[in-house]
Simulated scan of single mutants.
Amino acid sequence: MNNFDGRVALITGAGSGIGRAMALAFARAGAHVVACDIDPNSAKQTAADIGDTAFAVPADISDESSVTALVHAAVNAFGRIDVLCNNAGIMDTMALPADISVELWQRVLAVNLTGTFLVTHAVLPHMLKQGSGAIVNTASEAGIRGGAAGAAYTAAKHGVVGLTRNVAWAYAKEGIRCNAILPGPTMTGMATNATFDQTGMARLAPVLALGESIAQPEQMADAAVFLASEAASFINGAIVPVDGGWSAA
C-alpha cells in the first residue's frame, strides 16, 4: 500500500535534511520526484542521486512567481502532481518576542508559513482537476507548544498546523487529504548551521532538554511516505508528532 508507481511527488526543501530524505524515500517507493530547493546545486544533486525518475527545480517558495514557475515545471515534466510535501523551512534564532527583529520575523513567516500556503495554493488546482491528492506538511513540535523555539518559528509552525486542518476540511470531499508531521529534534543542517540568541536559548533550555533523542531525517521521511500512501487513505487533518515521545511528556 506504499506503492507510488506512476505517481508524482513534489518535495520542497529537497536539497538537504528531511526534504532530501523524503525525495529519496518516495523515489524508492516508485514515485517520480520533483526535487525543489532554493539552492539549485543541492536540488540537482538530489535529483541526480535518484536518477531518471527525478527532476530538479530551483525555487524560492516565499516568492509567488517562483512558485508558479515551479508548479508549471513539475506538471510540464510529469503531467500531474499526486503528492506535495511542503517541507522547506528556515529556523529562527530562538529569540524571545521582545528580542526578535521585525526583519527576521517577516522572513521566517514568509518561508515557513506563506511559502507553504503559496505552494499548496498553486498545486491544489491540479489535484482538484485529478480528483485526488495527498499533501504532507512539515510542521514542528513548535507548532503545538509555546516553548520549543523562538517567537517567529513558533508562530509560523502554529500557522502550518492551522493551514493543514483547513485544507483537510475544505477538500476532503474532493479526494484531497492534508496531514502534517511534527518533527522533534532531527539531525539536519537547519539547526546545526544556525546562530542562536543566548537569552532565548537559556529560557527554552528546560523544554528543549525533554527532546534529548535525536532523530534521523529518514525517520521523518518514512512518516511522510505513510501519510501520503493508500495505507493512510482515511487519515485526513492529522497532526502527527514524530518526536520519540517528546510531546507525550
Rank of each mutant, 00 (worst) to 15 (best):
I100N: 02
I100W: 03
S101T: 11
S101P: 01
E103V: 07
E103K: 12
E103H: 08
W105Y: 06
W105V: 05
W105H: 02
Q106A: 12
Q106M: 14
R107S: 05
V108L: 07
V108K: 06
L109N: 14
A110H: 05
V111I: 11
L113K: 07
L113A: 09
G115Y: 15
T116Q: 08
T116W: 04
T116V: 13
F117S: 08
F117Y: 15
L118F: 02
T120F: 04
T120N: 03
T120S: 08
H121C: 09
H121L: 11
A122E: 12
V123S: 01
K129A: 11
S132C: 15
G133N: 01
A134V: 11
T138K: 12
A139C: 10
A139P: 10
S140K: 04
S140M: 07
E141Q: 13
A142P: 05
G146W: 00
A148I: 01
G150M: 04
G150C: 08
A151S: 09
A156E: 14
A156V: 12
L163S: 14
L163Y: 13
R165M: 14
R165Y: 10
V167N: 07
V167Y: 06
W169T: 12
Y171Q: 09
Y171K: 03
K173A: 11
E174Y: 12
G175L: 10
G175M: 08
G175E: 13
I176W: 14
R177D: 13
N179W: 01
N179D: 02
I181W: 01
I181Q: 05
L182R: 02
L182P: 00
P183S: 04
P183M: 11
T186Y: 01
T188L: 09
T188R: 05
G189E: 15
T192G: 12
F196T: 08
D197Q: 06
Q198W: 03
G200F: 13
A202E: 06
R203M: 15
A205Y: 07
A205W: 10
P206D: 08
L210G: 13
G211H: 02
E212S: 13
S213C: 09
A215H: 00
Q219F: 02
A221Y: 01
D222Q: 10
A224R: 06
F226I: 06
S229C: 07
A232E: 04
A232Q: 15
A232W: 02
I235Y: 11
N236W: 13
N236Y: 10
I239D: 00
P241M: 00
P241D: 00
V242Q: 00
D243Y: 00
